[in-house]
Nucleic acid binder design. Structure first.
Lengths: 197, 197
DNA sequence: ATTCGCATATAGACACTGTCAATATAATTG
DNA sequence: CAATTATATTGACAGTGTCTATATGCGAAT
């Protein structure tokens, strides 16, 4: 009598997370429904509530992990560089762009205020960290212009996010761009370098 | 016998649009459901299909009108200026920012690829027009830098959109900004002026 | 070792949702 | 006036999130 499946799943929370992430990548956030995720995990539609109190909590957990991944990606790449702020800013920028183009649905989820809880402490913490990375570089890099490092940080992050978000909406398609290495994305980053080079 | 309400509504399409816009402003796009709109309009839940074939069509109609309004706002403000590209670029930028902060849910709808049809010909046309307005100014304004007018246009629009979108997600709140006239939004625009002044 | 309690899973219900088909009504056209 | 067309109603169906009552099984305390 094979017991491939016991009543108590044992690791359901993890399975739910993995299944939800797979559905996010494939169908977007609208494809991540409690019932569909439960079905994919092989449990009843009521089971997930024990691990994620509602759909919002599940999506917030997904977003949290992606914010973490983004920050980790940035820090990993930064660790390979020396103190020169120019390349460091550039690597932060391309890390963010790469993430967005590689995982469009994950990226979109990060900014879906109606789907996730942006006041989540861990999410706020990661956002602050990313912001700090930018500020740290600009505090070293800014020449004698009339703006403080916060303005540069907000401006660069805004530009990166706006570019990725609009590209994910199908804009600028005729420009034949694809990822940060491609002409337009690269140009956007290069353009911003005027501020610190 | 007062006939406040005849079987044939007469102007239902307009009423549906108005009611939907009101719901959008108040509850966001998720509050614009076919059935709720029908209820507010005082008709049965099946009536709207005669005017908007599905929910996506209704939301696309809303978005279309808002894109139009944005373009009209830009052109109206531009008409009051002379040929100097600096102020003209600035007015385009603040028009977009103002729109986003004044009508957050409308702005968010414009970029909700999952809710509206971004391949709609009229919407594409308005987007092209907005893009053209930016390019036209940068073709007059760009100094001897290494980027073409398209790159400046994409970069500025990206920055504006990114800033508004992130602000609408609750970011940069501690900076105590509110609208384009306020410190941070103004600074973002001022910062970009480095490219053409 | 047995029993009790708690964590977890199930199953059913409810109120929503979008969308479709069948029907009813009114306006318009021939 | 009759017939066609446009428009609105009603009911159905499959989804959805979320709540409640119930069932199950693990682990810990007796």
């Amino acid at each position: 009598m094979t017991q491939l499946k016991s009543f108590h799943h044992g690791d359901l929370k993890r399975v739910l997370f993995d299944v939800a992430l797979a559905r996010l990548d494939e169908h977007g956030a609208s494809g991540v429904t409690i019932r569909a995720v439960a079905k994919d995990a092989g449990v009843s539609h009521g089971a997930p509530v024990n691990h994620y109190k509602d759909r919002r909590a599940l999506l917030t957990a997904l977003a949290k992990a992606q914010f973490d991944a983004l920050l980790t990606g940035i820090d990993t790449r930064l660790a390979e560089l020396d103190d020169d702020p120019g390349p460091r800013i550039e690597i932060i920028a391309s890390a963010m762009m790469d993430f967005g183009f590689r995982y469009p649905h994950r990226y979109r989820l990060l900014w879906s205020a109606d789907l996730i809880d942006h006041s989540d402490a861990e999410i706020l913490s990661v956002m602050d960290s990313i912001y700090d990375r930018l500020c740290a570089e600009f505090s070293k890099a800014v020449p004698g212009r009339d703006f403080d490092k916060d303005t540069y940080a907000v401006a660069l992050w805004s530009m990166l996010h706006g570019y990725v978000d609009m590209r994910l909406s199908g804009m600028f398609e005729p420009l034949n761009d694809s990822i940060s290495g491609a002409p337009r994305g690269k140009a956007i980053i290069d353009l911003f370098k005027i501020f610190f080079e």
